[in-house]
Amino acid sequence: MRAVVVENPGDVDALTIQDVPTPEPGPGEVLVKTVASGVNRADVLQRQGHYPPPPGITDVIGLEASGVVEEVGQGVTRWRKGDEVVALLSGGGYAEFFVAPEGQLIPPPPGVDLVSAAGVLEVAATVVSNLKVGQLSPGETFLVHGGAGGIGTFATQYAKALGATVVATAGSDAKLQHCLAHGADHALDYHGDWVEALKAATGGADVILDIIGAKYLELNLKALKKRGRIVVIGLQGGVKGTLNLGALLSKQASIAATSLRFRPTDEKAEICAAVEAEVWPMLADGRIRLSPETRIPFDEVRRAHEQLTGGDNVGKIVLVH
């Protein structure tokens, strides 16, 4: 089968399409013929050599994909050949076929075609699981950085559905308007003093979902209300920062950092089940709308990564096979 392989980590030229053996499903696993693959920041980090897969997982990039069941392994009961599925993966999504544990497959959202569905599950699973870590409650203020991206667009709508006041940051007028159009109560330009603007608008944040990391560590803490929670899920702004522990103590605040990719299989299955039960109905009744989407042919995977990191992308990028 054809798959995207990175032999020497680096820039987009490191992405090559090669023939590799087609994986075989083991007990409890399902082989799926790929229709489309979601493109994520974690894929870029892996290409650069900063985010290797867990032990025993394929080196083929790709954390989410959609397709049609080709074969089921021993003990699989929910799926059969021909079923349409979306998958949360630890790797392997940029390929003609992929293997996933049975519990990390769910049907596509009602009324959503398989290509668009390829870019929904990883985002939804990330947001749902991490807002549970952050214990976001109705009436609280939620801040999400990168509000115009796939994570930010979904998190804005999901937090609104949970009854929160939502603040999003972004870096251009077009992206700020995107945030507001997708339900943000306030959209703040991160080139300015967004901490003071946040405090003026809402008094501060109860929960912050942070894709930036080290660069925003001190700023996020300043932006928190008392007993606020920061959940770090990305490191676009670096891995090492400084933290005023006195300020953390005085606010009785907490900081958590999580990675969906490295969670055990049973936890991922629980998260996928939660997405199917909680999020798919929200998509069906319009409480959540899909992010704007850019479809790029599989053979142009380098262009997909260039667009994702170029700074102008809004919404989700999907590779179409």
Results as ranks from 00 to 15, higher is better:
239 V>M: 12
161 A>W: 10
274 A>P: 01
185 D>A: 12
191 H>E: 11
261 R>Y: 04
156 T>Q: 14
167 V>H: 12
243 L>M: 02
235 L>I: 13
265 T>D: 12
219 L>D: 14
185 D>W: 08
249 L>V: 12
213 G>K: 07
230 I>A: 02
278 E>W: 04
273 A>D: 12
206 D>I: 03
250 S>K: 13
217 L>M: 13
262 F>N: 14
175 K>T: 08
272 C>G: 02
257 A>S: 15
223 A>G: 03
203 G>Y: 09
218 E>P: 11
216 Y>R: 02
206 D>K: 01
168 A>Q: 08
192 G>C: 02
270 E>I: 02
163 G>V: 09
254 S>Y: 01
250 S>D: 13
173 D>G: 11
230 I>P: 02
186 H>D: 05
219 L>A: 14
154 F>R: 09
261 R>W: 03
221 L>K: 01
168 A>G: 00
234 G>C: 03
252 Q>P: 00
174 A>N: 07
186 H>T: 13
258 T>S: 15
232 V>M: 07
215 K>S: 12
268 K>E: 06
204 G>S: 06
168 A>N: 13
178 H>C: 02
207 V>K: 06
216 Y>C: 02
258 T>F: 01
239 V>E: 14
220 N>G: 06
229 R>E: 07
163 G>E: 09
171 G>N: 05
174 A>T: 12
166 V>S: 08
262 F>R: 13
155 A>T: 06
243 L>E: 01
220 N>S: 06
156 T>I: 15
237 G>F: 03
267 E>W: 13
174 A>W: 03
203 G>A: 10
256 A>T: 06
230 I>W: 00
198 L>A: 07
212 I>P: 01
278 E>D: 15
219 L>W: 05
239 V>T: 15
176 L>K: 05
259 S>V: 12
